[in-house]
Amino acid sequence: MSTARTSSRFTDALAQIGACGIFLFRIFAAVPRSLRYFKETIRQIWFVGAMSLTIIMTCGLFIGAVLGLQLYDVLSRFGSAAMSGTVVALALYRELGPVVTALLFAGRAGTSITAEVGLMRATDQIAAMEMMAVDPLAYVVAPRFLAGIVAMPALVCIFNALAILGAHVVCVSWLGLDNGTFWSNMTASVDVWTDVINGVWKSVAFGAVCTLIASFQGYTTAPTSEGVAYATTRTVVFSSIATLALDFVMTAFLM
């Protein structure tokens, strides 16, 4: 009995993943058509990216500060407090920056995409567009998808920069690490390509995955308020899982 239920939940999950994959291909097919609505993409970058700046910047500052605090404490036990800045930078660029930003993004922008698209579905706006011979995939979904791909790397870079600033404030201004030591150790060990740019690639992938899941959940929601609520929840859950799983895969195979 319970195995039957488990297996049916398993097949349900598989079917969801499959439907999501097909949806991705439909988005890809719609991207060339969506170039006609380029202004819409710009507008979405504003909503998805610029509107997320506050949370991203605040969280970046605090995460950098707390990382600096913890690492300074831990590393000074080994007499390597000078490496604090380096470790903060490496941890941020390679993992924390892209992953934390993606999780915040899923909560901030992903949910709003799902709720928006879901309500458009529930109130027949999607059907109305189809009736006006406007492809909702090209007009509604693809611009959000592109916006996610563009906005996420920018957000990650901004997040990282503020986190470094936060770590600098804590380590140098507060804990008294030498300013020159902080920077020179960092510049000696951090590489542009393997650390910074790889993190940017990760963030591009996370941006695509988060907006794909968010718009898929919104587009296929049950057309009721309850359906939209469930879809929003699923967006956060699935985006987080997908982000972390993809992060592992990308780290294992690309870095």
């Binding site: 458009m120 027949d124 706006q125 009736m131």
Partner: peptide, 14 residues
Amino acid sequence: REKIGYLFQNSALL
């Protein structure tokens, strides 16, 4: 559809 106007039962304004 470009030649059809459709008034939805629940308005469906954007």
